[in-house]
Design a protein around this nucleic acid. Sequence first.
DNA 1: GTATTATATATGAAAAGTAATATATAATGC
DNA 2: GCATTATATATTACTTTTCATATATAATAC
Lengths: 120, 120
Amino acid sequence: MVRESSKISTEFIQTAARILKTLGHPDRIKIVEFLEDGEKTVGQIQRELNLLQPVTSQHLKVMYDRNIVTFRQKGTRYFYSLANNFIIKILDCMSEVQEKLDSGEWDFDFSKIENQKEAV
Amino acid sequence: MVRESSKISTEFIQTAARILKTLGHPDRIKIVEFLEDGEKTVGQIQRELNLLQPVTSQHLKVMYDRNIVTFRQKGTRYFYSLANNFIIKILDCMSEVQEKLDSGEWDFDFSKIENQKEAV
DNA sequence: GTATTATATATGAAAAGTAATATATAATGC
DNA sequence: GCATTATATATTACTTTTCATATATAATAC
């Protein structure tokens, strides 16, 4: 459970950075969390998150291009699902952190980073 | 170890997105990984990653603003260190995934997402 | 006090990401 | 075939990020 300081490979760092960056959007986190429940159509996702259809498709396309989600097509429906275990790991990680925060075991100064104007 | 599907709160999603996005840069992942070893000065980080000094400071400033790193000043030296446990969790997560990939237990199509031109 | 070292800040250009509007495509129901 | 439904793609304006160059600041060594 505790990290052994085995260096992360350069190759994996590239990939990980790409994935973390892509998941660094609230709606995309919500989408993958929703998909953890099982495959969903674009319409289901759109309604669940209250997004515009093209925006939903755009997020899914970006995530498909980066190997975060995959899909199967059935008629006019596209059923999207999570493409790999890394994503599930990240979701697990977020859940664990949320629990620690909820239980008060960890503290986190949300105010410090939210709704903050970008720098550099 | 297996995720209980307790919804992640909207508030935390905002924060998590911010953090994931910020860590979504190869050099920044390398920096936090280096910091896991203990606090480091800007110069140490710069030399370790072979970056320009202002670029190093810029990365550190962005991460400071988003509560990923913190620092103490001693003379002209700034000693940076990790600011919270969430970051360590993410590093753990990446290590675990790397191990699974190395061991062949998991497979991941790196080619699919690397050096790829952006889409929308 | 002058030079040097360590680091921060300012600025600007180029690249990437975001979100909206409009349009295309393709399957389905009638 | 025609309308409808589900989704993708194109385009564009806007915002943010990234990286480099230049400069400022402040402590230290001499």
